[in-house]
Structures are given as structure tokens and as C-alpha cells.
Simulated assay, not measured.
Amino acid sequence: MRGVDELQESYRLEGTWPVGILFSRSGITAISEISQLQGTLLAISEINLAGGVLGKPISPLILDPASDPQRYAQFASSLLMDRGVTNIFGCSASYSRKAVIPVIERRGGLLWYSIGYEGFEYSSNIIYTGPAPNQLHLPLAEYLFPRYGRKLMCVGTDYLFPRESNRIMQDLVSEIGGSIVGEHYLPFNAQRDAFSNIVKEARALGADVIFSTVVGPGIAALYDAYATENLDPSVMPIASLTTNETHCQEMWFEPLPGHIVSAPYFETVGSPRNSNFVANYHQRFGAKRPTDACAEAAYFTVLLFARALERAGTLDPERLRAEVLGLEISAPQGVVMVDPDNSHTYLWPRIGMTEAGRKFRVVAEFKQAMKPDPYLMNYVGLGRINHVQG
């Protein structure tokens, strides 16, 4: 992949800050993880071109776990035990994070985890920079229910994140007298026909929304199945926590306008900081590769790491963790901060709607960064979140 080899060749220990990079460039989760990898590499390149950290470059050792949970664990162990690494940027799907956690905790490393997940977890060996459920699930529910209705057809890939996400949405929709009319979990390699049956069922049961936590290649199959049924997104949209610009770009057709996605970042976020990020990303990886929430979070995660490293002057995980808690930086989505209460990150919830050109138009966003609440301890009910605009 463009941008990987030249950095890979530069990996060395002496006179650098060595870090491990554990994102899949192959396998079922490669689409999202390549975005994460590219965001990570862009940040490292920018930092190194500006003189590195305290005069030394960041030196990445990049491994491809090929979407295999056993390889994530094996490679994490190798990085920590054999390669002189104490900090790892990596993992995407929850099964990969869960595979790595015991290794990270046992070996005393620090995992920088940059993608949205199901919450209800805490490890002092992880810095969580992707959205927690209150920053991802709640804003979506808040936007959907008054505009489209309260009857959801749930469809997801068969692993932890979709199942836990549907549990959260079940609680939210039940609270306002709605219902889940159907709940389906399909394998990562599910084809269009399997999704067509679910879309037909959603229409027959009068669903208002198809709530999707499908990941990997199944995303394109779901949207293709929807389009084949000649449905109208203004009446019954797909509302997703997992679809992004790169998925839309990789589809063999353009998704219909009007589908909904909840994320802290979209390429169309209007700010000089984001415009600069998008331009640099396209320059490095090509104009056809869009930025997305996976790339943006991975990018600013490295910036947080570099700032903490500058303060700590060491790669020691405990020292870095102490410096990053409460640390605030400017990211393409807005100013973000690692919450000292829970090691998750203040982020900017947004709702995007698909539009022509395989892009998303931001139709709602919060006025300020939202405090992460991974256990939903401070959730007070729908209708009480009052920062949504649009």
C-alpha cells in the first residue's frame, strides 16, 4: 500500500521512538483498518517531517494481522516481548481488541484504540479515542425517533459489537414505546440475497428504520439489497453506526441519498483544520481515497500520543498515560480531550446523510464535545440531550 513501505523500512530502535502498528491490510475488516492505518501513517509522517518528537522520529513497525484474532494476539505479544515496543496503535473490530487486551495487560503495554465500540469496558492499558455508546448510539436514536418512527429492524454482523449495539438500541426504543420488529445476525461474508430477505421482512413488518451494524463487505451487500427493493430512504432509511465514505466509495453502485449514519466525523465537516487534513490525506493516498471517521480518529490519536510523549520524554506506558489523561488537542472533527475519569475521549457527535457523489451531508451536530460515558452511567433518557442542531 502506498505510504507503508517507506516507513516500514525506517523501523529501528536506536535514536527513534519505536511504536507498533497493528491494522489489517487484508481480510474481512481491511476496508476500515486500511483507513485507520493511513490516518496513523499520515500523522507519523507529518510529525517526523516537522522534526519528530524531542528531535527524534517516530519509527513504526507495521504488521498485518489479516483480520485474524489469533494473529492480533500473537503480533501484539511479539511487538511487546521481541521488538522493543511498548505502545501499539491498532485493532478495529471488538474481537481483535478483546484478543489483544490480555496480552497488553500482562505485558504492561499501552494500546491506542481509535474506533467506535460497544462500551461497557475499561482497561488502564488502553486509551480509547473512538466514540463510546453515548457519543454514537444515543445521538442516532435522538435523531431517528422523532423523524422516522420507533419500529426498528436490526441487522448486524455476527459478533460482539452488533449484538451489544442492538441491546442498547432495544433499551432506547423500549423507553419511548417503540419496538424491535426483527433482529438478524449474518456472517462477515454474507451476500446480497441474505440481506434481501431481511429488507423484504422489514417492509412487510412495517419497520420505520433498518438499523445496521453490518461491517466489512456485507455493508455493500446490504445497501445493494435495499436499492434492489426500490425502497425510499426518506420513508425507511438504513441508519448505521458502521458505514462511512470509504465503504460508499468501494461500492459497485452509488448508495441512494437519504440514508443515515452516526459518527463524530465526516469528510464534509466544514473547518479550516479539516480542509487541511483532507488535502494532505488525498495528496498522500490519492484523490479517490476519501477521509472517514476511522482515518480521522487514528490520525488525531497519534497527535495525542506525540504530545504526551513530548511531555513525558519517555515511551514508558505509565508515564505516557499520566500525560495523556486530560490532554486536549485540535483534531479535524474539533477540539478533543482524553477524559481523566475513564480514558475515553471527548468527541463531537454528528449525524450524516448520504448524498450524491458518495458523500455525507452533516444534518445534525452537537454544539460542543461530549463527555464519554462508556457505561451509560449518566444517561437520563431520550429528550434530555439538548445540543443537537439541524
Rank of each mutant, 00 (worst) to 15 (best):
N230A: 12
S45W: 06
L327S: 04
T86V: 08
A93C: 11
G270S: 13
Y346V: 15
R358P: 14
G51N: 12
Y379W: 15
I62Q: 07
V380F: 02
A30N: 07
S59F: 10
R361H: 05
A298F: 00
T345I: 10
C294T: 10
E118P: 13
P237G: 05
S59P: 08
N280C: 10
A225I: 14
R12V: 11
R97I: 10
F253V: 09
L37E: 03
R83H: 12
L186S: 08
E175D: 13
A202I: 14
Y72P: 15
P272H: 02
P69Y: 00
A356F: 06
G109A: 05
P162H: 08
A263E: 06
Q170W: 08
K200C: 11
N166R: 11
V363F: 00
F366Q: 05
G390N: 07
H259R: 00
T16F: 06
R71F: 03
S67G: 14
Q170K: 09
L140D: 06
Y148P: 13
I260A: 01
G55W: 04
S45P: 12
C154F: 13
Q38V: 03
R289K: 04
Y95I: 09
R307E: 15
P237D: 01
H247C: 10
G326A: 01
I238D: 01
L49Y: 10
T228K: 11
F277Y: 03
R384Y: 04
R71A: 14
S94G: 14
S94A: 13
C294R: 02
N134W: 00
F23R: 02
V338C: 04
I101Q: 03
Q249C: 08
Y346L: 09
R2P: 15
E201N: 14
K151H: 01
I260H: 00
S240E: 01
V335Y: 10
V4W: 04
V278Q: 03
H184N: 13
Y143D: 05
N87G: 14
A331H: 04
G116D: 04
L241A: 09
S165T: 15
I260G: 05
T345P: 01
V261T: 06
L309G: 12
I21S: 09
S92W: 09
A225E: 14
L41C: 07
Q389C: 06
A287F: 08
R150Q: 06
L172M: 14
I58H: 05
I210S: 01
V335P: 04
R311V: 12
T345Q: 02
P317K: 02
V278I: 08
R284K: 12
E118I: 07
